[in-house]
Design a protein around this nucleic acid. Structure first.
Length: 557
RNA sequence: GCGCCUGUAGCUCAGCUGGAUAGAGCAACGGACUUCUAAUCCGUAGGUCGCAGGUUCGAAUCCUGCCAGGCGUACCA
């Protein structure tokens, strides 16, 4: 609908140029918007105003000229007008809206998809939590945002690969091994003062117990270094398996698990350091190796290899991003917790230093989650190892509610997640509000089938039947769904999908509720058929939208 | 100190990257269940869009400076 009109409009401007009625200044970007107020039409454009300066004429006058050149052989438009400071308002002919309804049914699960990303490959990396502890709620938000964004990008045609970067190397893994080893020793009767810089959580002791079951006491007889390494390997594997399981339960599946250690094993880390050193991008100072990130906009240079010879986390990350670029994606997306934002200039610098286009790497920062229960903050302290895990949240409120609510905010806004509210079955909880539409319509379809109305097909006489303003309004709302998906892909803002669904759900609930006026299944066979066609289209969109979000669309609630 | 994010109704937040009269939900108040599921709906009320300037036909949106909150600012991850 919008595209068709956009084409008409563009042709009109070109025709005006050709006829010499407007100075051929080159085509301005033609933006069509849906006005907030119904009396301003179905679509409006401000081209006349944006052209005013270059045309050196009044916007109203330009608008008139453009309208004079509009050709509308298919009678898409019922009315046009110049309004206000120079807007052109377009009113779509009522009959044309039924095309939307037909398209929804015809495309079905594909309604909302588009082709803008066709032929392009995107890699999206998210969660990537260290395998030193279970996933917590913050990771859950990143997982929901990343997974949904991936689905949205797929819907607009991109080939998408989802990846998890596993930090299975370095100091934090060593600390993990040491933590487990010390608990292991404690459990076997040794008195040990458990250090503050070790992982404090209860899960460390669980791992130590598992290790005792598996290995007995034999680690006590080994050199400590060796024992710690065994503990580290064991613990990281166990924790990673748990992370995979938690993500699986959460409905998130990754295409690729990329090991940090593999970058060391293949020599990639060493190679990229040597390469950058030979270009004097990495230099030596105070016994350490530094990256000249300040040459690329960072506020200070960063250490890559410490004076003691060990690498910082930055070193493998450089190699990792090089690897990503070498895999020839058109775009790579990193989804990080906002607490990592200080790291952005560094990565950006390293990408530029290696000669890649930094615009091809997009970093999405997801703000933190404040966990509440009944409006009161749930105490969490990572240091003391007291945090609420993603698993606990999903177990308590369910996958659907958790995923929906994690997406219920712009990702750059901090999110209050209330456990009580997430379980509540009321208007306050948008999850059930939206799902309820699907269940209601499913129920209508069941009732209809019982009454013998089994076919959901288009008939041309629906033009004369679905004529109520609120019915046309619903169809107009449905026509916007593909734009919502496309916009949310372009801006990488998945929250637009649940917001749209909420709007569509509200419109449906209102329509449904006036049951004297809008009864779908009635004795009037033609009316029933038409309305079944209408509401089942709504059901399709609700289901498609929820599917993008990884939320189920139940038939009964 | 510097950097990033946020500041919109009493509360929680949208606002289509500059448009016409700023929108939802909750809370408050008043209504609607003989029904295709009330996990719902209808109505009323609620605003100097943090503050002050600037840019232009037009600003919640862009620019500058303040104010407040969060996060970051390591040879930690």
């Amino acid at each position: 609908m919008k595209q068709e009109l956009s084409a008409l409009l563009q042709q009109a401007v070109e025709a005006a140029f050709a006829a010499g009625h407007l100075r051929p200044t080159g085509l301005p970007p033609v933006e069509l918007e849906t006005p907030k107020i119904a009396t301003h039409g179905d679509f409006s454009t401000n081209v006349a105003m944006t052209m005013a300066a270059s045309q050196k004429r009044a916007p109203q006058e330009i608008a008139g000229i453009i309208l004079d050149h509009i050709e509308d052989p298919d009678h898409l438009l019922s009315k046009t007008e110049v309004a206000g400071p120079g807007f052109i308002n377009f009113f779509i002919a009522r009959e044309k809206w039924y095309e939307v309804l037909k398209a929804v049914h015809k495309k079905d699960t594909a309604y909302g998809t588009s082709q803008v990303g066709l032929g392009k490959r995107i890699q999206i990396e998210f969660v990537s939590a260290n395998p030193t502890g279970p996933l917590h709620v913050g990771h859950g938000r990143c997982a929901a945002v990343g997974d949904t964004l991936a689905a949205i990008l797929k819907a607009v045609g991109y080939e998408v690969e989802k990846e998890y970067y596993v930090n299975d190397s370095g100091r934090q893994i060593y600390t993990l091994g040491r933590s487990v080893f010390l608990r292991y020793c404690q459990l076997l009767g040794n008195t040990i003062d458990f250090p503050a810089d070790c992982y404090q959580g209860e899960y460390i002791q669980d791992l130590a117990r598992m290790l005792i079951d598996r290995e007995g006491e034999r680690l006590l007889d080994m050199p400590e270094e060796e024992a710690v390494m065994i503990c580290a390997k064991f613990a990281a594997d166990e924790i990673l398996a748990g992370i995979r399981q938690d993500l699986e339960t959460f409905g998130v599946s990754l295409d690729q698990w990329f090991s940090e250690q593999s970058l060391y094993d293949s020599g990639a880390v060493e190679a990229v350091i040597q390469d950058l050193k030979s270009q004097d991008i990495i230099y030596e100072h105070d016994g350490a190796l530094w990256f000249r990130t300040t040459d690329f906009g960072d506020e200070k240079d960063r250490v890559v290899v410490r004076a003691n010879g060990t690498t910082t986390y930055f070193a493998p990350d450089i190699a990792y991003h090089k690897d990503k670029f070498e895999r020839k994606f058109d775009c790579i997306i990193n989804i990080w917790g906002a607490d990592h934002h200080g790291y952005v200039p560094r990565i950006s610098a390293s990408i530029q230093a290696m000669g890649y286009d930094k615009a091809q790497c997009r970093i999405v920062l997801v703000q933190l989650v404040n966990l509440l229960r009944g409006g009161k903050p749930v105490a969490m302290s990572t240091r003391a190892g007291e945090f609420v895990t993603l698993k606990e949240v999903v177990d308590e409120v369910g996958r659907d509610a958790a995923r929906f609510l994690f997406l219920w905010r712009h990702h750059e806004s901090p999110l209050d997640f209330d456990l009580e509210l997430a379980k509540q079955q009321s208007n306050e909880n948008p999850v059930y509000y939206v799902q309820y539409v699907h269940a209601r319509i499913s129920n209508i379809l069941r009732k209809a089938a019982e009454r013998g109305y089994k076919e959901i097909d288009w008939h041309d006489d629906f033009h004369e039947i679905l004529t109520l303003p609120e019915e046309i309004q619903l169809i107009k709302l449905m026509s916007r769904y593909p734009e919502v998906v496309a916009l949310s892909a372009r801006l990488m803002e998945p929250h637009r999908v649940p917001f749209y669904l909420k709007e569509l759900a509200a419109a449906f609930h209102a329509y449904y509720h006036d049951r004297n006026k809008h009864k779908v299944v009635s004795d009037d066979a033609k009316l029933s058929a038409a309305r079944l066609y209408l509401v089942s289209a709504i059901r399709i969109i609700i289901r498609n939208g929820l599917t993008l979000m990884g939320v189920s669309a139940p038939d009964i609630m």
